[in-house]
Amino acid sequence: MGVIKEFAEALKGLKSLIVGLGITGKEFAKPGVTVHYPRKVVADKDLVTYRGHIELVGSKNDPAMPPCITCLMCQSVCPSGCIKIIKHPPPKKDPAADKNAPPEAYASGLEPKTKAAPPAKEKPVKTPKGFILDYNYCSLCGLCVQSCPVDSLRFSTEFYIADPSKKAFVYDLMARLKAQAGTATAKEKE
């Protein structure tokens, strides 16, 4: 009996092997599923959802300027410290400019009020002078984008990037935004 059982099991095993061959044989006949990279690229629907490195968003009025208010939230929340925002230096008190202003006249109250509103207090420039991203250390967590109070940051969908040098991944995002705005206006003109 034992022998018969053994043989039955062996035959069952052989059958399973043949079934396996059948499956791979069927797959052999099917077309490939890989994306043939240099000739084909990833479908757009899978690309648009990709969160690449961050980039600045152009503001409504000026597509070459971000709505960034240099609150440094992104810079401080970044776990890898790869964002660096360069602020405009605070406006210098220019003595000559001060002289041109007619503070005394206003103070005296003799000037007619219809002429002009008093010059507003000079606003500190809030837009960043530079916005540097060191993509080498970025972990793509998205905390910076999430913490931005004015929605000045977004993810790019760029992932066809490769370079032998680390320096290539230190992005000047302001320049990038300007270039993007430039191509956008050029397209509009066309």
Partner: peptide, 11 residues
């Protein structure tokens, strides 16, 4: 990738 934006090390 659609909601998370990444493919492996999600955050």
């Amino acid at each position: 990738q659609m909601p998370t934006g990444s493919r492996l090390t999600y955050c």
